Measured scan of single mutants.
Amino acid sequence: IGSLMYASIFGNVSAIIQRLYSGTARYHTQMLRVREFIRFHQIPNPLRQRLEEYFQHAWSYTNGIDMNAVLKGFPECLQADICLHLNRSLLQHCKPFRGATKGCLRALAMKFKTTHAPPGDTLVHAGDLLTALYFISRGSIEILRGDVVVAILGKNDIFGEPLNLYARPGKSNGDVRALTYCDLHKIHRDDLLEVLDMYPEFSDHFWSSLEITFNLRDTNMIPGSPGSTELEGGFSRQRKRKLSFRRRTDKDTEQPGEVSALGPGRAGAGPSSRGRPGGPWGESPSSGPSSPESSEDEGPGRSSSPLRLVPFSSPRPPGEPPGGEPLMEDCEKSSDTCNPLSGAFSGVSNIFSFWGDSRGRQYQELPRCPAPTPSLLNIPLSSPGRRPRGDVESRLDALQRQLNRLETRLSADMATVLQLLQRQMTLVPPAYSAVTTPGPGPTSTSPLLPVSPLPTLTLDSLSQVSQFMACEELPPGAPELPQEGPTRRLSLPGQLGALTSQPLHRHGSDPG
């Protein structure tokens, strides 16, 4: 009997000691992992102490058991019943959930998450997105703005933001810190809205009876308010094209079509300037034949640059190039080494500058006005007194259609001029006259002087055409309008007829 009692007592005591040691061994194993994590990542002392304290409290609170892992091991129907039991206190005593059906309560219970916070733990920081609604079931918390405590909340209090009033989550206007050990039930806004969409009859009752104890939403960050730039940057990543407008005076608003859609830094370009900076079609017209890549860069430059609305530039004389043409100036200075066709295309550029300027006046029909002061630039669209967005969009579309028509007509005119030049060069190729044979009589004449090349004649003739079109064909006081194609086609051969009437002889060394 004594040996039996000794064996039973010894066996029970050893089993008890073994169970104690097993729990202690698990605790030390998990604690060792936490300390190894702290050492590996070199976490500083204040945060390291918070980690160790939280682990110790969580171990004593749950005995080292992962409740979520245990809950996920059950089937979904059983999980709903378990969640309904775990959140029964909240669902029974909170006013917004009263009167809900059994199915609605089960769906809500599945969406709730339980959070346990030790003292000093910050649940929400200032500036964080308010993605959830919090219900306090135990403990107390404090809300701070800077170093000032603005509120202390306790059991059955609710904090967050009214989700039904805002389409997008706002930002917190303060820090939420736990004063004691707290148990909180939180539900994400997407989950709550999903359940309320499934039960629309409960939705009206819920929003009407929901009383948020403390609204954390920062009202200064609401979209459309003066301080909402940061919020707009976070939620409006896919922005449309940006529009900046110059201020319109009362006198300017009476004149229709007073602005032109141009790229940034293009205030001095012609009315047909689009795409790359520098001139019509993204580059100076005089350098068009020598740089074919300008047409390839036109599309990307047009689509990537934001639109700006600026006044037209001052008018340019008909014979003056659009500006920024070092290529043609070098050719004029060193005409001995340049291609003979460069002079002809220089005359073509003069005609283009004249036609572009006159067509700009035809479509816009307003006098040039000086540029406004820099303080009046970049007025935002949302400022008071601005035109409605639809009106601005319609004006932009009208300007775009005008620019497209202008570009089409300029292309047709350019093709006409090039065809005339090619026809003239085919009839009378460039050549130098040879020395004529002296006559049989004693009164022999001296050799004839060489005839100037055709490109120079073409430049003079085209300059005469531009001056003739600019000065004589337009009646005084009438708006400057571009001439039609047949009129220009008839004027060019008439001007060139006198020049080509002389018999030109080919030089023996000319390969053409």
Rank of each mutant, 00 (worst) to 15 (best):
F468G: 10
G323D: 07
G224Y: 10
P169W: 05
S383R: 06
R138V: 08
L496A: 08
D128P: 02
L403T: 06
P321D: 08
L499H: 15
R246I: 13
L366V: 12
C369I: 09
P271T: 11
A470C: 14
E211S: 07
S394N: 15
Q467A: 08
F312L: 14
Q464M: 13
P482F: 05
R308C: 07
F159S: 02
Q400N: 05
R409E: 03
P482E: 14
L262Y: 12
F354W: 12
L193C: 06
Q424Y: 13
S208C: 12
R389M: 05
L193R: 08
Q419K: 06
L496D: 08
V176D: 02
Q238D: 10
L457V: 10
I187G: 02
R145V: 06
E325M: 12
K251H: 09
P429W: 09
P384N: 05
K155Y: 04
A431C: 09
R248E: 10
M328K: 04
G257N: 10
S342Y: 11
L454A: 12
R247A: 08
K240R: 10
E473L: 08
N404G: 08
P479T: 04
A267Q: 10
Y134N: 04
L243F: 10
L216V: 02
D128S: 04
P370M: 07
I143T: 02
P511M: 06
P447V: 11
A478I: 12
L492P: 03
E142D: 01
R386F: 07
L216Y: 01
E230A: 11
G174Q: 04
S349C: 06
S284P: 10
L420N: 06
A269S: 10
A132Q: 10
E472T: 06
S203F: 05
Y363H: 09
E298C: 03
K251F: 13
R138E: 11
S290E: 14
G288C: 12
R368V: 09
N173Y: 10
S137T: 13
D175R: 07
A412M: 09
I152S: 04
N404W: 12
P289M: 05
S334V: 10
S286D: 04
F214G: 03
T408A: 06
I158S: 13
L381A: 04
A261W: 13
T500R: 11
I351M: 06
S304N: 03
L504T: 07
A398V: 08
L130A: 03
G512S: 10
I379P: 01
D413E: 05
Q467G: 12
L481C: 09
M469L: 08
D128T: 03
S394G: 13
E473A: 11
S314C: 07
G268N: 10
L381D: 11
G263K: 14
R145G: 02
D157A: 08
H185G: 06
T445S: 10
L457T: 13
S244F: 07
D510Q: 07
P450W: 01
D190Q: 07
T213I: 03
S509W: 04
S260H: 10
G356D: 10
S209V: 10
P430I: 15
A267D: 14
V348W: 13
R217T: 09
P442Y: 04
E298M: 04
R237Q: 10
P292C: 08
D183L: 11
L457A: 09
S463A: 11
R145C: 03
E473K: 05
L184F: 11
E480D: 15
V435R: 12
V435I: 12
P306E: 15
G170Y: 02
R246V: 11
E320Y: 12
D175F: 04
P321Y: 15
P430N: 14
C338A: 13
L327D: 08
R395I: 11
P447R: 09
A269H: 10
D183K: 13
S203K: 14
Q483V: 08
R217K: 04
Q467K: 11
G356C: 04
C338E: 15
K242T: 09
S287R: 04
A167E: 11
P430V: 12
N173G: 10
C338I: 11
S509C: 05
F352L: 10
R266F: 13
N220W: 10
G512R: 14
D336C: 06
E298F: 15
S346G: 06
Q422G: 10
R405W: 05
S349V: 03
E142I: 05
R274C: 13
C338K: 15
N350K: 15
S209A: 13
S444W: 14
V417K: 03
R246E: 08
F312Y: 11
G497D: 04
P340C: 04
P311V: 03
P388L: 08
K333S: 10
V428A: 07
P370A: 08
S383I: 15
F235P: 10
D510G: 08
M328Q: 01
S260R: 10
S501Y: 11
G270R: 13
F235E: 12
D147K: 07
Y166W: 13
R368Q: 08
P440M: 09
L459C: 06
R359P: 09
L474R: 05
G347E: 08
P486L: 15
P280H: 15
S444R: 10
R401I: 15
V451R: 06
R237S: 08
P503G: 11
S342W: 11
E325V: 14
N378R: 14
M469E: 12
M469G: 05
L184T: 04
P429S: 15
T253A: 12
V392I: 15
P311R: 10
F159C: 01
L327C: 07
D147L: 03
G282I: 08
M469S: 10
R386Q: 10
K240Y: 12
G146E: 11
L403I: 11
R389W: 15
P453F: 11
G477Q: 13
I152C: 03
S294G: 07
S509D: 05
G324N: 15
L165I: 11
F352V: 10
L474Y: 15
L421C: 07
P340R: 13
R189D: 02
I379Q: 13
A178G: 02
I141K: 01
P223C: 07
A261V: 12
A498T: 10
R387Q: 13
D330R: 07
A167I: 06
T337D: 07
P315Y: 15
P503I: 11
D204S: 11
A415C: 08
R189H: 08
S394P: 11
V435P: 10
V148G: 08
D183C: 08
Q400S: 13
S452L: 11
S286I: 07
L403Q: 04
T337F: 11
P440G: 08
P326W: 11
P271W: 07
T337R: 09
M414W: 05
T408H: 09
L492G: 07
T436P: 13
V348N: 05
I222M: 04
A371I: 15
P440E: 13
R266C: 12
P285D: 12
P479A: 07
A344T: 13
L492M: 06
Q362I: 08
S433E: 06
M328Y: 10
S444V: 06
P311K: 08
S260L: 10
R138G: 10
C471A: 06
S346W: 08
T249Q: 11
A151L: 02
D175A: 07
S304T: 07
L420G: 08
A431R: 09
L133I: 06
K186N: 08
G512V: 15
S334G: 12
M414D: 05
A344L: 08
N378I: 01
Q238P: 12
E393H: 14
A132I: 03
I212R: 02
N350D: 10
W207S: 04
S335I: 07
G265C: 07
I222N: 12
P223T: 10
T437V: 07
F214I: 07
D460M: 12
F352S: 05
E325D: 08
S260W: 10
S244T: 10
L210Y: 03
S353G: 09
Q400V: 11
G324L: 10
Q364L: 05
V259W: 08
P370K: 09
F214E: 03
P321N: 09
L410S: 06
G439I: 07
P380D: 08
T500Y: 12
S303P: 06
K186C: 13
G299C: 06
H205Y: 09
R389C: 04
L366R: 07
R274K: 08
D297H: 13
P200D: 06
L462S: 09
P280R: 15
S501N: 08
G323V: 10
L396G: 06
Q467F: 03
I143N: 01
K251R: 07
P450C: 05
T445F: 07
